[in-house]
Amino acid sequence: MVMNDDLSNSLDQPKGGDAGIGEIFVGVMSLGFALKGWLDSIWVDGFGGMLLMLAILLPAWGIGYWASRAILKYVIWPRAGYFVPISDSRKRTGIAVAGRVRTRLTLITVLILTAVSAAVVACLAVFVKRPSAVNYPLEGILGTFMFACLVAAYAFWFVFNGRREYPWKWLVLVFLVLGFLVIGLPVRMDYLAVWPRIALFNGVMWLGSGLATLLSYVRHAKPSTVEMG
């Protein structure tokens, strides 16, 4: 038995998708990637590059993670209440079944996206090996491609979850796609230099969109002032 979609969807909302947490997290990570790419271009390569990646991306992940936790604790829980989603091992009854249907749909989509991605990367890798090809280093292609996948995942999330509450995010999506096309796909450009620019652009867009969503949430949802229970 599958419960009403609204009931099922409402259980997803306070997890943060409706207050911009996900976008803020991805935005911070993207800016970390942009910084890493920029430092790469002026500093180190090889093993030093790996260390640099850890030195930048781990703090970026930490900042994103702790910002998410802080928003949950100080913004969302006092307004929407606190809940722990049911774990996979203890899925029960109707709502859990509805959740499982959505999870399956998401998994299938991710699998298809991954397969398409792998095919595109394989084609590009072959293209790179051709002597007449312009210089497309694999790292640059993968970096650019990773952000293409992120934009696709964002579009997927927006179409299935976000469009009803925040119609203005259509603009964010359009800008992300246009920005990606304008920055990322000019012919004969050096992809090693391109992907940090895409990371910077996407990071700023996601961070901005996430902060705007958070501000909108704070303005419209007031914290509870009564002692509960």
């Binding site: 606190y82 722990v84 109707g94 709502i95 229970g229």
Partner: peptide, 18 residues
């Protein structure tokens, strides 16, 4: 009960809002 069946646990405020 329907809401509680979909979560491990929640607080009073969450249930009141939902």
């Amino acid at each position: 009960v329907s809401y509680l069946a979909g979560v491990e646990e929640c607080d009073f405020l969450f249930l009141m809002r939902q």
